[in-house]
Design a protein around this nucleic acid. Structure first.
Lengths: 205, 205
DNA sequence: GTAATAAACAACAGGTTGTTCATTATTATA
DNA sequence: TATAATAATGAACAACCTGTTGTTTATTAC
């Protein structure tokens, strides 16, 4: 991935910077943070920060990229089984196992994810995450999960609907303290997605 | 609502400030804006800005409050007809007329709405808007649209799902240039909400 | 042990902030 | 229309953050 140059000082510095970033986002929100805040909390010199990152946005993007890479890996691991499930008659189970993997990952990285997806987090990350989700579901590849010729609404709105809805459920889970297990969250999310919110609200027979 | 003290100078100043704000959000994003940017574009003295608003966030909140007030009015106007429709057998039509009103309003105020809901907009507004939507659907009132005893998933996740999904569709519409009519958007949104995205994607018989 | 290099320290100009004050211009109203 | 009220201007202020640079000190890899 990046340079394999693990000078211990660099590792320590970057770790304390990223730890401080999460703390500060939860405390005062991304936009209120100054580079000085970060370096004070990380107990490093301000000049050292600039030796590693251009500014706080550069730091954010680097952190977020790591998350996206992980998510790509999870997606690729789950891809074959989901495709297989979709081709059988147990369609409803197809997204379930994938959703479990997703929530398990979020659970492990909940510190950063809660901060960055929370109400004081990074709006641009949500935009990129939506884009990533849509490409996962409906990418360039010929055997994508979704095929536009079957859509009942324009693809862009289907994408926006699904992407934001999924992120919304994730946000709520992180925000309310992750009381449900990843399995339970996967059940909730697939129920909402497969049957729709109208049904899940008890408004439909 | 606010003071009835319409000194023409105040009206002019506030209007040019708010106009400049929308321009600048679209141009460089809320967080990159300085008070100096706003006053330069609005062609007013920087001191004058501080005579009206504490800072740029105070300005944002005041603008956003006006939007929320309008939305409340629209909701109240549509309430009786939606309740009536829900009690007949034409349940699917219930949210439709309300959605049309909503998109018509967004269409009129698209300048500000696009800026504030866009990728360079205000995350905290989205949070408040979700909260508002949920209270509208499932408020304190006894005859709310939704009743928790019927829910198949926890109410907080249903709320998060619906709220963010609706906002997502609105964002996509504003972002892509509002090519569809409010009626068409209402059809898309109600189709997605009533039948669910899985169905709308053609994945369900 | 030594050379390489990361981090600390200190100082810099340039920019924004929020406030204050005296001065000028506009508005409401009598 | 004259005048009193008040909004806006212009200028100055200290305080703060930024991004950069050069020097010194400490840690690390080999």
């Amino acid at each position: 991935m990046r340079n394999i140059n693990p000078d211990l000082r660099v590792i320590r510095t970057k770790e304390s910077i990223r730890h401080a970033l999460v703390e500060l986002i939860n405390e005062k929100g991304l936009e209120a943070i100054t580079v000085k805040d970060i370096t004070t909390m990380a107990k490093i010199n301000r000049g050292t920060f600039y030796a590693h990152y251009q500014d706080k946005y550069d730091l954010m993007i680097k952190c977020e990229e790591d998350i996206m890479i992980d998510m790509s890996k999870i997606t690729k691991q789950n891809y074959p089984s989901v495709i297989a499930a979709l081709e059988t008659d147990s369609q409803n189970l197809a997204p379930f196992s994938f959703a479990v993997s997703l929530f398990e990952y979020l659970n492990i990285n909940s510190g950063f994810m809660k901060a960055v997806l929370g109400p004081k987090g990074d709006l641009s990350f949500q935009t990129r995450l939506k884009q990533f989700m849509w490409e996962t579901l409906y990418g360039n590849n010929p055997n994508a999960f979704l095929k536009e010729e079957n859509f009942l609404v324009p693809g862009q709105y289907l994408a926006a609907y699904m992407g934001t809805a999924i992120i919304g459920v994730i946000q709520q889970w992180l925000e309310s303290g992750r009381k449900e297990s990843p399995q339970e969250m996967a059940r909730i999310l697939t129920n909402l997605t497969v049957n729709g919110p109208y049904f899940a609200a008890g408004l439909k027979k």
